[in-house]
Amino acid sequence: MNTSVFLAQLMGPVMLVAAIGLLVNPEAQRDMARQFLDSPPLIYVTGFIVMTAGLAVVLNHNVWALDWRLIITLFGWMAVIGGAIRMLCFSAVKKIGYAMLDKPGAATIGGVVWLIIGAVLCYFGYFA
């Protein structure tokens, strides 16, 4: 199986479920985010996990073609950078996170974006 297709099959459904959770129950997601932001050890551990997953993607799929595969590469790099930031800058992550939570439409916008990207990845991973 092609690496791009495998990663699309892996990432697409996860993004769809996360998006649906954001759109269906935004207040519960906001409460969970607040609890997350109040725990520096949890921010660090998730940074470690996200950076490791991002490196796994980038090391196996660093494809800079102008097609759907670029989504996977960009998410891999964003995970590497985002994970490193979580590990190095707890207070900045907390400050940015609370600023995002203060924006009422942020969860909806994020949910719609993740829904679209998840659907695109599912399409190319399972149907194309």
Rank of each mutant, 00 (worst) to 15 (best):
A107G: 11
I71C: 04
I72F: 14
P104D: 15
I72H: 02
F75N: 08
V113Q: 04
L88V: 08
F90H: 09
L70A: 13
G82A: 08
L74A: 15
I72M: 07
W77M: 07
T108Y: 08
L115E: 02
I72Q: 05
L115C: 10
T108F: 10
V80F: 04
A107P: 03
R69L: 01
V112R: 01
L101E: 01
G82Y: 09
L88Y: 04
I71V: 12
G76H: 07
V112G: 02
K94F: 03
D102F: 03
I85A: 11
L115T: 02
G76T: 04
I72W: 09
I117M: 14
L74Y: 10
K94Q: 15
V112D: 00
R69Q: 12
I85Q: 03
W114P: 00
R86N: 06
W77Y: 14
L101P: 01
C89Q: 05
M100R: 09
A107S: 10
A79C: 11
M100Q: 10
F75I: 14
G105M: 12
I116R: 02
L74S: 08
A107F: 14
I71R: 03
V80E: 03
I117K: 04
D102W: 01
I116C: 11
G105R: 13
A92L: 11
Y98D: 10
V93Y: 01
V80A: 10
V113S: 04
G76P: 01
M87V: 05
K95C: 05
A99K: 12
Y98S: 06
G111A: 15
K94E: 13
S91H: 10
G111C: 15
I85N: 07
G111R: 12
V112P: 01
K95W: 14
I71L: 13
L101I: 02
G97Q: 06
A99R: 06
I116L: 15
G83W: 07
V113K: 09
G82S: 10
L70E: 02
G82Q: 06
G97V: 14
D102A: 13
A107E: 05
M100Y: 03
I109W: 12
I71W: 05
W68F: 10
G110T: 09
G111W: 15
L88H: 02
C89T: 06
F90M: 06
F75D: 02
G83E: 08
W114K: 02
W114I: 00
K95R: 13
V113A: 11
P104T: 13
G83I: 11
W68G: 00
G111K: 10
L115P: 00
V113E: 13
T73W: 05
W68E: 07
I117C: 12
G111E: 14
A99W: 07
A92C: 05
A84E: 00
I117V: 14
L101Y: 02
L115F: 12
L70I: 11
P104L: 12
A107T: 14
K95L: 09
W77S: 03
I71Y: 01
W114M: 11
